[in-house]
Amino acid sequence: MIRFPYRAVSWLTPVALLVLWELLAQTGILPKQVLPAPSSVLVKAGDLLADGELVTNLLASLQRSATGFAIGASLGLGTGLLVGLSKVADALLDRSIQMVRAVPFLAILPLVIVWFGIGEAGKIFLIALGTAVPLYLTTVLGIRQIDPKLLEMTDVVGLGRAARIRWVVLPGALPSILGGLRLSLTAAWLALVIAETLGADAGLGFMATNAREFLQTDVIVLVVLIYAAIGILCDLVTRVLERRLLRWHPTYARLTA
């Protein structure tokens, strides 16, 4: 039986859009001041690579996002497990976290400047906050959606609390946790864009801000494409984790068969 090439087809749409974009730009339908051709953006990327500007700013953004993500993911996962497993923690923490979740990033930006100034701490705080909330929500949801019959079975076979968490609760919540990890990676980059407006002296956001001042549309488009490429890479990493960690899960196995 011939299998339909789903993975190959999934790349056809973005490639077709790039080709169409190039054609429209080369024929002048899209003015270069509005949206330069992909080939022009590629040439600009080569120039920025040659003088080291692109590498320096990319590394600065990656360092910020990695630090903020590590802190936020640890807090989100740890707090989610605590609230999901403890009614006392749920009563103490969940309401406050839900209130924080409802506050937009831009609304707390002035407060972050007051707290941390325009240094690196404020930027990392915003990224950590954006990362922690999605992972917290999906972790709690995953624990609460575990089939009660499975928990009853652990009582029947005499599993203790630690063994029940190890063999039933965590594996049952894992699909939801990995879904939250994907959302958190996306949120980390969204938060990075906002964070790098806080007087950054390096980073992709810094590049885009300077390019806006000098009407360098090709640099702005390049930054957007880099964000998109990193987002795709992060998504591929989470898919690899799902493939490795959820081999046992019947629903996931059926979807990937």
Rank of each mutant, 00 (worst) to 15 (best):
P14D: 09
R144H: 12
R182F: 05
T256V: 13
Q216V: 06
I71G: 09
C234W: 15
T131M: 02
L215T: 12
I127P: 13
A257P: 00
L204E: 08
L246A: 01
L75A: 15
I113P: 12
L181E: 14
P5V: 05
I97T: 01
T13C: 02
D218R: 06
L77G: 03
G78E: 10
E53Q: 13
I143T: 04
P148V: 01
A208H: 02
A257V: 08
A202N: 07
V103P: 06
L233M: 15
A107K: 14
L17T: 03
A50P: 02
S176G: 09
G179W: 06
L30T: 06
T251D: 09
I2F: 12
R243T: 15
V15T: 13
L246V: 03
I97P: 01
P171I: 02
L129A: 13
V34K: 01
D147V: 00
A253N: 10
L20V: 15
A66R: 04
A162I: 07
L106D: 10
L23D: 07
R7C: 02
G46L: 14
T217R: 13
P104D: 03
A66Q: 01
G172I: 05
A187S: 15
A89P: 00
L62T: 03
L255A: 15
R247E: 05
D218G: 01
L18A: 05
E53S: 13
R254Y: 12
G130R: 04
W115E: 01
K149N: 10
G179C: 05
A16C: 13
P148Y: 03
L170C: 04
Y252Q: 07
A188I: 07
L126P: 07
M99Q: 12
W248D: 08
D47K: 11
L174W: 07
L85T: 14
I113M: 13
G180I: 03
L192Y: 12
L225K: 03
A173H: 01
V15D: 08
I2S: 05
G72Q: 11
L30Q: 06
G142K: 00
T138C: 08
Q216I: 02
H249Y: 12
L137Q: 14
V43D: 14
G46P: 00
V193L: 00
T186D: 00
G119R: 11
V43P: 05
G122E: 11
W248H: 07
G158H: 01
N57I: 03
M207D: 02
K44V: 04
S184Q: 04
K44A: 09
V83Y: 02
W167A: 13
L75Q: 01
A89W: 02
R243D: 14
V43N: 03
L85C: 12
V41I: 14
T139H: 04
A50M: 09
L192V: 11
A200V: 10
L137K: 11
V221Q: 07
P171W: 14
G180Q: 10
S10D: 13
V156A: 07
